[in-house]
């Protein structure tokens, strides 16, 4: 099995696109940290003023006519958090960990990249015709498919590690490695401000957001096995990644949306108040069902399929 995964890794890294994706993650992560650095107040003395200004501008924004409710909520929350910082004299300078935690939002980008790699690793064998040579070896088809799946997931893991390390190194260089650890703040269910240790929060974010790296590539993988064309599998998956959660959010009024995959691909939302009003355990259950279902379809189809000409 190790040899098979190694084979798949070699093929994956023989593609330029894999390296381009990794380079992209590195550049974007650095870029995101640098932008944050430029936007933060230059002198610590100015920090208080900076936060006061932020609160002021949020309040002004609230006055805007016809503002949708959810945007009003967001603004009110941000005002509350900023006021809380000022009242409690919390460290105000942006810190290394705050930035690393912030960069976890780039995991969506990795999900897109890995989905593309997942579709390619299956569909390319069909389009190149190499599938014929691959499946006439003394190995079960399940094993061949598993080696591909594990290779893609390893790439996902590699990219997350790259994202994390680059975040720590670049943010550390910019904000200093010894900055005071500002807690992570959010509005709890009773409308009060909750403090969480930032390093803990960072780990949690990376862990939970990685669910997207598990689910979307699995979707792409399944589509590639079923349709055998890269464009279709990639296209559908990327559309799902970008539009799925938005569609799910827009339709929260309907009760069935809570059964959609897209309502759960960021379970960290569930922890800080999920728009679908479901529990964290429910999210995990739904994700598990989708995960098993998609993989069952992939494996069943791949095992049964007649390999014919293009």
């Amino acid at each position: 099995m190790i040899k098979l995964i190694k084979n798949e890794m070699i093929k994956m890294f023989a593609r330029k696109s894999t390296w381009v994706m990794i380079a992209f993650v590195i550049v974007l992560t650095s870029f995101s940290s640098i932008v944050m650095y430029k936007m933060s107040p230059e002198k610590p003395e100015n920090s208080r003023v900076f936060y006061e200004q932020q609160i002021e501008s949020s309040k002004q924004a609230l006055e805007t006519p016809f503002l949708p409710d959810y945007q009003k909520d967001e603004l009110k929350k941000s005002i509350k958090i900023n006021e809380y910082i000022l009242e409690n004299n919390l460290p105000m300078e942006p810190s290394l960990w705050e930035q690393v935690q912030d960069n976890s939002s780039l995991i969506v980008l990795i999900a897109i990249f890995i989905s593309s790699a997942a579709a390619t690793i299956v569909a390319s064998e069909f389009s190149q015709g190499t599938i014929k040579l691959l499946l006439i070896r003394p190995l079960s088809r399940s094993k061949v498919l598993l080696s591909k799946y594990l290779a893609v997931m390893s790439l996902g893991l590699i990219m997350i590690v790259v994202l994390f390390i680059v975040s720590v190194v670049v943010s550390g260089l910019l904000f200093g490695f010894d900055g005071a650890a500002k807690p992570y703040l959010y509005i709890g269910s009773e409308g009060n401000v909750v403090e969480v240790d930032m390093v803990y929060k960072t780990m949690e974010s990376y862990g939970l957001k990685s669910v997207a790296i598990l689910m979307y590539p699995t979707l792409a993988f399944m589509l590639a096995v079923v349709f055998r064309t890269n464009a279709l599998a990639q296209g559908l998956t990327i559309v799902s990644i970008i539009l799925g959660p938005q569609v799910a959010n827009a339709l929260t009024d309907y009760s069935w949306t809570k059964y959609l995959l897209f309502a759960h691909t960021d379970p960290s939302l569930t922890l800080s108040g999920n728009p679908f009003g479901v529990s964290f355990a429910f999210s995990i259950l739904i994700l598990g069902i989708y995960f098993v279902l998609m993989n069952s379809i992939s494996w069943y189809t791949f095992r049964k399929r007649d390999i014919m000409g293009q």
């Binding site: 023989a14 190149q128 190499t130 014929k132 040579l133 006439i136 070896r137 003394p138």
Partner: peptide, 16 residues
């Protein structure tokens, strides 16, 4: 299949 070696249609291999 372990006793078999084969080319089916064109010998498509990994070009890269």
């Amino acid at each position: 299949i372990s006793d078999v070696g084969a080319i089916v249609e064109n010998p498509e291999l990994y070009g890269f």
